[in-house]
């Protein structure tokens, strides 16, 4: 559905995007994670036919963005990170204009526009001037606009940026609905836990290079050398600390006497983790719980981008 092959964009001596290789299958929600200036918007602009790549190729639905730009435009719904609206249009007129731009007949538009406004919870604002809408409403209206021609691919550049928590939740719910409709969605965001919740796959980009790509679980497994293990004991906390400190795969044991808990970093694989638990039980430790700490996407992002120069 979306594929990039050695996609590169240079501005003089500055490389904004370097040999990006991506393959996003139909119906996938792909989250693009990266710091500001990492190359996310550059990638999105190329895919939306707004920017010519320096080298490499990008395909949307099998159409080359460089040579078949018109076909690509018919298959994508694009929402930029920053956008404006025609302030003298009413909400309905705004959508009507874009519907007409995509060649949708007036009769179809009359049916389609109320449905889209309902999808983005703006039915009660249909007769309001766009300029008078709040930022969150404008974001939702822009999303409705990107859906007007029922595109198979949605390219959403930070759709939740600058929104208050309620507006973010509303946006997230709409995106979940779009995911259920089978749309292929390429989305970037700084709200990383939200991406983890709704994305099937994520790609981490830093300084124009894709440093990790795959499912959230895969990336966590690939890139997290240290697992954090939390242990809750019924008694003998000191004895347990001495036991775990003695293990060659364990480091940084910290105890919490108030809660009879300890935690440590563990570098072994799953089998070694099972063996460690068995050995601890054999050692006579009264273990109530033994669990690996779930790290969120934010931790993964920080881990991956550790040491990257963001300047």
């Amino acid at each position: 559905m979306i594929e990039t092959i050695n996609l590169t964009k240079r501005y003089g001596s500055f490389t904004a995007l370097n040999d990006l290789n991506l393959k996003i299958e139909k119906g996938t929600v792909f989250g693009f994670v990266g710091h500001n200036g990492a190359g996310k918007s550059t990638t999105f602009s190329i895919l939306a036919t707004l920017l010519a790549p320096t080298s490499g190729a990008a395909f949307v639905n099998g159409y080359n963005v460089s040579t078949e730009a018109k076909e690509v435009r018919n298959h994508i719904g694009y929402m930029p990170d920053f956008f404006g609206v025609y302030d003298q249009f009413k909400t309905v007129e705004y959508l009507d204009f874009y519907g007409a731009s995509y060649g949708i007949s007036p009769a179809e538009r009359q049916i389609l526009i109320p449905q889209l406004l309902e999808l983005v919870n703006l039915s009660n604002k249909s007769d309001v001037y766009v300029d008078l809408l709040s930022r969150g409403m404008k974001q939702r209206l822009c999303l409705a606009r990107s859906l007007i021609h029922d595109p198979e691919v949605l390219i959403l550049d930070e759709p939740a940026s600058g929104l208050d928590p309620r507006a973010r939740i509303e946006m997230r719910e709409i995106l979940k609905e779009l995911k259920n409709m089978g749309k292929t969605i390429l989305i970037s965001s700084h709200i990383l836990p939200e991406l983890a919740e709704m994305c099937d796959e994520i790609g981490v980009i830093t300084n124009g290079e894709l440093v990790a790509s795959g499912s959230v679980a895969d990336i966590q497994e690939q890139l997290q050398a240290n697992k954090i293990i939390n242990v809750k004991l019924a008694s003998d906390l000191e004895k347990a600390v001495l036991f775990f400190e003695d293990h060659h795969r364990v480091s940084t044991v910290t105890k919490n006497p108030n809660r009879d808990m300890l935690s440590f970093a563990f570098t072994g694989n799953d089998e070694e983790q099972i063996a460690l638990l068995k050995k601890a039980l054999d050692h006579g430790l009264a273990i109530l719980s033994f669990s690996q700490e779930e790290s969120n996407l934010e931790d993964v992002f920080l881990e991956i981008t550790k040491g990257v120069d963001f300047a």
Binding site: A48, L50, K70, R73, N74, F82, V85, Y102, G103
Partner: peptide
Amino acid sequence: RQTLNILLTTP
């Protein structure tokens, strides 16, 4: 006004 990019992604 940041409306051009959206217009340019239409056919």
